[in-house]
Design a protein around this nucleic acid. Structure first.
Lengths: 351, 351
DNA sequence: ATAATCAACTGAACCGGTTTAGTAGTGATT
DNA sequence: AATCACTACTAAACCGGTTCAGTTGATTAT
């Protein structure tokens, strides 16, 4: 078996308690004794048992993250891996680990949170993909599980939030398109059930209003590639079809751009396209995608830090506001087609 | 505080021991008593404390996974999220959770494994991205940490492996290209430090040999998009430049295809391209990418199952062999350019 | 009738830490 | 010299389970 605190105590000729004090930097031992104990512990290669520590201090030394996604979609999102890496960089500095849960079916989600809470597997969770009137807020409150949310929920939430405002990124995209002469700028939104789906649509509407343009070219999709195709088709079928589309994520922008091209439209000649996330592959599309770059790594760091602060009581009480995302202009956006060109542009795709 | 086993014992009028026996389905209690205890436990809403359980049974009820990647690369790989989802589907059936660790720097990797092992945070780990002469095998043996490896290491390993042979997929790609009339089929490999980088190259060599072709158009890259560009450029600079390139993953194929197009080559007219992984976005490239589809979800399931079997001693001793990946033919591959066309094809890119 | 066996159950030890209460020893205070 | 305060330390309780060693009472064997 591994070396325990009793072994150290015996070898150092002191009691268990003294060893505990010495190792945790608490008062109650003289410097000389502390030195000796540390020395002995090191020699014996003592490593504290997380389990024992957890039992007596009623902590799990772990944070939880539940990803509730269709497994098909999981691999398509560049956000999570980098986000998780960000969480880890923070946790690595403290003595915490990350427990990851994947809920592939909606009903599995609640079960996942209960599983994390029940046995005391984690000390808190990071809530992502917050939804409109998110039922998980109540669930976590019921489970008495500390949490931080990514973006502030629209329902009343007692948990600190770590937010990255979509507005600036979307505004920048719309302004960029307006500057290129676009008037009919559409938006393919993600599911409006998600607050980031909503906030991006609202940001688009606000930016359009600010530019004095009407925001009626909206199609709701679900952040998936097929959804992007369907929503794009819907917008392109309209008589007042857009000359530019702002997508709520890269995957939809990618599939939307692909669809438009397959319908004979030139991107950006006939249709300008912007994405959101700056997935790496978007640089290698034809044309490379103009998109909005967030920093999931930083987001992960901040979320983990906020949760740790909350756990040890040093939480400021204020939400964390992250740096706004930035627009990366690439070749999928260009000048609005001239009026003449617009009239003679390829026929709208068949229904 | 939460309700403990003592509360249940008291409420049921029995000893702690009896409650434990009853709840774990062990002999030592009559059916009547067992019923009563279960009933009381249910009424009180008792949930076993994972920590206490872990301490007395010396188990962590968790498996570990260390992803050692540059954080920039993490988001680009569709493999991990689906793989993790697969692990989870298996773990959800048992009472285990997944502890995820991200090692962004090489030297952080060993630390990550030690961290998981030291406090007894996990009962075993799943080893991914196995390398040539992988030092982690020795490390895990030293740490006395059970493990399964994804693919069989080339060094001697005491751990069961869950393998998915690259050969069939790569062979299928090469055969497909040969059938299209290609003679000069190159390979852009992933880092040969990884055994899956090696095995894909070996599979390409074997398939070329089988077709009576020489396998000399090889360029090593590192599974990244920029690496794919560089390796593609290298191959295209050669006087005997390939008319088709088999890439070791989708990301390199994507950036390679993009680069070739940027050099004025037509894909697949001048150059056919195949990927590996079937990342979703590859369907929406222009042209859509011919690629090799693996099943990371299944792989995750199998790996978790193998590790759990090993932990409870029911491991068969044999490696798990997964179904071979399949070739998905899309538009990035086409007939080899005619000899004349080949001579008059766009000039090779400048150095 | 008595011993042996067995099922059903209890009490306590145990896992490896933390923490509280208490003890010894030292030095300062009056 | 007695009191007090304080430091350095120890012993033991505690966290919430599991498990071992008994104990009891009923059943079976002789």
């Amino acid at each position: 078996m591994a070396v325990t605190i009793s072994d150290v105590a015996q070898a150092a000729g002191v009691s268990k308690g003294s060893v505990s004090y010495a190792l945790n930097g608490q008062p109650g031992v003289s410097d000389a004794t502390r030195e000796r104990i540390l020395q002995v512990a090191k020699e014996l290669g003592w490593k504290p048992s997380l389990r024992a520590k957890g039992l007596s201090s009623a902590k799990a030394y772990a944070l939880g993250l539940v990803m509730a996604r269709d497994p098909r979609l999981l691999g398509t999102d560049p956000f999570f891996p980098a986000f998780i890496a960000g969480i880890e960089t923070t946790l690595a500095e403290h003595d915490y680990t990350l427990v990851l849960s994947v809920a592939t079916a909606p009903e599995a989600e609640e079960r996942a949170y209960r599983k994390l809470a029940d046995g005391g597997r984690v000390d808190g969770v990071i809530l992502v993909d917050v939804r409109h009137n998110d039922s998980r807020i109540g669930l976590l409150r019921e489970l008495n599980l500390p949490a931080v949310t990514l973006n502030r929920p629209d329902a009343d939430s007692p948990f600190p939030a770590v937010s990255m405002d979509d507005t600036d990124g979307i505004s920048a995209a719309v302004e960029h398109l307006v500057a290129l002469g676009h008037i009919r700028i559409g938006h393919v939104g993600g599911s409006q059930e998600y607050i980031h789906g909503r906030s991006r649509r609202l940001a688009w509407e606000a930016a359009m209003a600010k530019a004095g343009l009407s925001a009626d070219l909206f199609a709701e999709a679900d952040f998936t590639a097929p959804g992007g195709v369907a929503a794009t088709a819907e917008l392109l079928r309209r008589p007042d079809r857009p000359t530019a589309i702002v997508y709520a994520n890269d995957l939809m922008a990618t599939s939307g751009q692909f669809y438009a091209q397959s319908q004979g439209l030139n991107v950006p000649g006939d249709l300008s396209v912007t994405g959101y996330d700056n997935a790496e592959f978007t640089q290698y599309l034809n044309p490379p995608l103009t998109t909005i770059a967030t920093d999931p790594l930083l987001w992960g760091r901040a979320a983990a830090q906020a949760l740790l602060n909350q756990l040890n009581g040093t939480h400021s009480g204020e939400d964390t506001q992250l740096q706004a995302p930035v627009l990366l202009v690439r070749a999928s956006t260009g000048p609005a087609p001239a009026q003449a060109a617009s009239r003679s542009s390829p026929r709208p795709p068949a229904g």
